[in-house]
Design a protein around this nucleic acid. Sequence first.
DNA 1: GATATGACCGCAA
DNA 2: TTTGCGGCCATAT
Length: 108
Amino acid sequence: MTVEAAPTEAERIWQVVARIPRGRVCSYGLVAELAGLPRRARLVGRVLSRLPEGSRLPWHRVINARGELSLPAGSEGGRLQRQRLEEEGVCFIHGRVPLTRFGWRGGP
DNA sequence: GATATGACCGCAA
DNA sequence: TTTGCGGCCATAT
């Protein structure tokens, strides 16, 4: 029997993050839920913070539930995240991304 | 083994 | 709107 190791939680999270469409953002909790790991948002944050360099994962599309970037602004990561999101056309309002549970309603 | 910390979340007041 | 609290759990000390 081929003992195929079940995908680790981290691998599931990577798969979900990799599925986030360009120009769209996702909250940690939503990523966790989509990965079949409800209420483990912190795990998502931990996994993303421990990503190997060059993983090509769009980690910058994952922000917190308030629509703000969790990485400290001013840090390299935070600046990179903001820059990449703006490059993808993500809408920033007062330094935030408008998140709604009912999807984007057509902003400004 | 126990304690502290962290790229968090949802709810109540 | 903000603040506080409980929940969650892998790592580090």
